[in-house]
Design a protein around this nucleic acid. Structure first.
Length: 922
RNA sequence: GGGUGUUUAGCUCAGUUGGGAGAGCGACGGCCUUACAAGCCGUAGGUCGCAGGUUCGAACCCUGCAACACCCA
């Protein structure tokens, strides 16, 4: 083995070996265990969120695979309708072309071509993460089988009346030229204005205070072109008399009815509201209630259309806004303009301002699907981890709105509906099917719907369509419902909820039994990592390392807002003055696990990754040590293990129990902690050090030495298996060296069993003995450190006090103590013998004395004692007050009181010893 | 406006049914001890956001407040 850990030398080759050997496929027999990957965008690239969740999923899959389950991690990618189409359109634009010039078929061809070029990117990156995905079953939301599932679902929902087409007010993205769903709209607080306009009253009517006009306030003046009413609150005395009268719509010349509606807030603005049913969601509802006309005044590009007066036609909405305000002002109808902050709706992809717009769209009638999905969670058939997120889910599901599934786009599943010459709609799996269902002759001309389905419609089928549905495949029977879904809280509504609804509807089963919701990956300042903010990191850069200039170029290139580049560059140079060193996949994975506590967002901290890279190196070197001391040596199993051997096995049992429990509870942080603590703090810090003196003692019993060598190997091998789910590469590399020495069959650790705590026994005697030894060594090291005794210098030790148990343990472990604390001799002070001037350490009743002679600085020792005495006095004070409290004695459970008494006695005794020692030093 | 979460050592975070505050990193001091200086040994550092309450006893339970984050309208 190389002298230090070098991840590059091992990772790629190991992964290729696993893949070539087919180790990622579920084994033929055994109970199934399945996780479906949240499908990454097919042309996307790996970001920190992916790296995070794939680490967790891979740890779960590897753990279950090692536990003997037929573990399937189902791979697949998403066609990502809007973002992929946007990307390709941008490429076209760069060439000076548009998709419309190309036409639908050639455009789609072009997207497929792009998928062919860049679609392998994400797969390669997932491999670099060590993800044990079953590539042989890889699916794509637009592949033939999946598309069939999508068509099947659409047709059946339509047949049952759960999909309908209708004219509704939807969120319209003018930049993309398509409707989008409520979830794809992000409301951003922005500074705007509130314009107050006068609408003259018709027929000489007057307000209660004698005005001949009403005042309406709006943040979007241009929509006034589509006003069809003015509304007031029915109880509002100021306007009560005007209800049923009419107002004059300036610039347009229409007369608007004045209506009464409870939804009007009399306290907002003037108390009168202009109503534009075709361009505002509240107004739309009111329009339906009152049977108002709905006048669409915007084109698909959000310019003013021909329903408006000629003066405004063709103007962009913002230009029209200026013109209208100016014109009203000129007419003396602009009463005032107030600064006003408002929540502006923007498209999550395009960032364009969304316009509510009345269009024909396809919808899923969602309430009948939501009901069983709510029930499934309430009954615990789907369980959220952490449980908290169930409330989020319920809240959304309870007042869920019908789901707009049509998109005016080309890249996606084209809606399987055909229009007859009479405009009638015929739905079927394909055109022939539609004809057959409708009983149409072959010569009746049909025109297919132009719209495609939104991406989330197909992803909603992910749990079962990836497994072969609508065919009744073996995979479906074996792996569905899947065991757990691992995903971020940002897509509970987009995806998790919809999968639950669709799986219940079409398979009668929940899609997964548990949902583990992890946090989002944020930067050191706690901001969500994102490309546009330039604060993201590429997981591969952490694995491979990257120089500063390359990092700057990467972060500032391709920004959607190029003006941010200088700031990003500055921050990058500040945060990563030397670029990023290479940490390797295992260190990165370990970091993610260690940071993944209870579903909260994680601030990614490179210092942690560095620490875990060091941990990898530690493990690597421990293995080198073990191999050096075992290869070609006597490994006979004849000898009896010694106390340290028994102790480390006992500790290993505890580690395995903690690790398994943590993984089962999705506490990846506790799992990582259990591995880290055992490997470093117990196996390396203590066990290897305890093993050295025995291994290097030429006079030692060969069988005992062999027993220790075996223990070194066996516990290391066990540790590797326990750690494999989180650090697959390094554990595999080391395991291949270690396994042959133990005559273990098999060529990969990933198919070896995960350790079972029950296979190891707890050894209380060894635990106690080594605890004693550690305490004695710690006491000696403390004396040495504080007194400034040179590391190379040996000391003599006298033991005094203590009981029979201390004598027994000293006899057993004295030699080890000598070795670990650089002690040349240990002697017991006779009962009556006076102690020489010494530094003192206490372990229970046992006094550990290091005779001063000329070794130590007297002042340093006085100081040390004083600190110990102060600490002990403080403790005794606290206990004293507590025990003097009659209420405590009366009310606390007797065993607690007893426990406190014991502590007080012990503290008292120790304090006396310390004080006597202090007195003896003068 | 409604909801959820967070607030513990300089930083990032643990803290399991309420019973003497922990880890990693960083800091400080000392070490090239034949696996590892990506290491070893030792040390220091916290009014557990604030204010009340329940309790013999609160980081933990209850109430209010504040700051921050996210979700929804």
């Amino acid at each position: 083995m190389e002298a230090s850990f070098n991840p590059h030398a091992i990772e790629t080759a190991i992964y290729q070996g696993w893949e070539a050997a087919g180790h990622f496929a579920p084994k033929a027999s055994g109970r199934g265990y399945c996780i479906v990957i949240p499908p990454p965008n097919v042309t996307g690239s790996l970001h920190m969120g992916h790296a995070f969740q794939h680490t967790l999923m891979d740890a779960l899959i590897r753990h279950q695979r090692m536990r003997g389950r037929a573990a399937l991690w189902q791979m697949g990618t998403d066609h990502a309708g809007i973002s992929t189409q946007m990307l390709v359109e941008r490429q076209l634009n760069a060439e000076g072309k548009t998709r419309h010039e190309l036409g639908r078929d050639r455009f789609i061809e072009r997207v497929w071509q792009w998928k062919g070029e860049s679609g392998g990117n994400i797969s390669q990156q997932l491999r670099r993460m060590g993800s044990s995905l079953d590539w042989s079953r890889e699916r794509f939301t637009l592949d033939a089988g999946f598309s069939r599932a999508v068509m099947e679902v659409f047709v059946r929902l339509h047949e049952e009346g759960l999909i309908y087409r209708g004219q509704r007010l939807v969120n319209w993205d003018p930049a993309l030229g398509t409707a989008i769903s409520d979830l794809e709209v992000i409301n951003v607080e922005e500074q705007g204005s509130l314009w107050h306009f006068r609408y003259p009253l018709c027929g000489g009517a007057r307000t209660a205070d004698g005005k001949d006009h009403l005042v309406v306030a709006t943040t979007r003046p241009e929509t006034m072109l589509g006003d069809t009413a003015v509304a007031v609150h029915p109880q509002d005395e100021r306007f009560r008399a005007l209800i049923g009268q009419r107002a004059h719509l300036p610039l347009v010349g229409r007369e608007l009815p004045i209506i009464a509606d409870e939804a009007v807030d009399p306290a907002f603005g003037s108390g009168c509201v202009k109503i534009t049913p075709a361009h505002d969601f509240n107004d739309y509802e009111m329009g339906l209630r009152h049977g108002l006309a709905m006048i669409n005044v915007l084109t698909a590009e959000a310019a003013i259309n021909d329903s408006a007066p000629a003066a405004y036609r063709g103007l962009d909405r913002l230009a029209a806004r200026q013109r209208i305000v100016a014109d009203l002002d000129a007419l003396g109808l602009l009463e005032q303009v107030q600064a006003h902050s408002l929540m502006a709706p923007r498209g999550d992809r395009s960032e364009a301002i969304i316009e509510p717009r009345l269009t024909d769209q396809w919808f899923v009638r969602i309430a009948p699907l939501a009901e069983p999905a709510i029930k499934a969670v309430r009954e615990g058939r789907v369980e959220f981890v952490p449980k908290q997120y169930e409330n989020t889910y319920f809240a959304w599901m309870r007042d869920i709105k019908d789901w707009c599934i049509s998109r005016q786009q080309w890249w996606g599943h084209r809606i399987p509906a055909w229009y007859g010459p009479d405009g009638a709609i015929h739905v079927g799996q394909d055109e022939a099917d539609a004809r057959r269902r409708a009983g149409l002759a072959a010569d009746v001309p049909l025109r297919q719907e132009e719209d495609v389905l939104e991406t989330w419609f197909s992803s909603a089928l992910w749990s079962f369509a990836t497994l072969g549905w609508p065919e009744r495949t073996q995979a479906l029977a074996r792996f569905h419902p899947t065991d757990v879904l691992v995903t971020g809280h940002d897509i509970i509504f987009f995806w998790v909820a919809r999968m639950i609804m669709m799986a219940l509807k079409f398979t009668g089963e929940v899609p997964f039994r548990q949902v583990y919701i992890h946090g989002l990956v944020c930067d050191a300042e706690g901001r969500k990592m994102s490309k546009t903010k330039g604060n993201g990191l590429d997981p591969l850069d952490l694995i491979d390392g990257i120089g500063l200039e390359a990092l700057v170029a990467k972060r500032t290139g391709n920004l959607t807002q190029p003006h941010l580049a200088p700031g990003i560059e500055k921050a990058t140079r500040r945060d990563y003055p030397n670029g990023i060193p290479s940490y390797g996949t295992d260190a990165l994975r370990f970091t993610f696990c260690a940071l993944a506590s209870t579903g909260r967002d994680v601030r990614f901290d490179l210092a942690r990754t560095e620490g875990y890279r060091n941990f990898c190196n530690k493990l690597w070197n421990a293995a080198r040590f073990v191999l050096m001391n075992t290869e070609g040596k006597n490994l006979s199993a004849a000898g009896k293990p010694g106390l340290p051997d028994r102790w480390i096995r006992s500790r290993a049992r505890r580690m395995v129990a903690r690790a398994s429990e943590a993984l089962d509870a999705y506490r990846f942080d506790l799992y990582a902690g259990a591995i880290h603590e055992f490997a470093w703090r117990e196996y390396c810090d203590w066990y290897l050090e305890l093993a050295k003196p025995l291994l290097w003692d030429e006079g030692a019993d060969p069988d005992r030495q062999a027993a220790t060598r075996r223990t070194l190997l066996e516990v290391l091998e066990l540790l590797l298996r326990a750690a494999h789910p989180v650090m697959p590469f390094i554990t595999e590399a080391i395991w291949r060296e270690v396994a042959p020495l133990l005559d273990i069959d098999g060529d990969t650790i990933m198919l070896r069993p995960f350790p079972e705590a029950d296979d190891l026994s707890a050894d209380l005697e060894a635990d106690a003995a080594i605890d004693w030894l550690k305490a004695v060594v710690a006491a000696l090291r403390n004396i040495r450190g504080e007194a400034g005794i040179k590391p190379g210098q040996t000391v003599r030790v006298l033991l005094a006090g203590g009981g029979a148990r201390d004598r027994e343990l000293a006899a057993l472990s004295g030699a080890l103590v000598q070795r670990l604390a650089k002690v040349e001799s240990i002697d017991w002070l006779a009962e009556a013998e006076a102690a020489p001037g010494s530094a003192l350490g206490l372990v229970g009743e046992l006094r550990i004395l290091v005779p001063l002679a000329d070794l130590i600085d007297l002042d340093a020792e006085r100081n040390r004692l004083r600190k110990a005495i102060d600490r002990k006095r403080g403790e005794l004070n606290r206990l004293g007050t507590k025990l003097a409290n009659e209420k405590f004695i009366a009310n606390a459970p007797p065993q607690v009181v007893e426990q406190e008494r014991l502590k007080a006695n012990e503290a008292e005794a120790r304090l006396q010893v310390l004080e006597a020692q202090a007195a003896s030093l003068g």
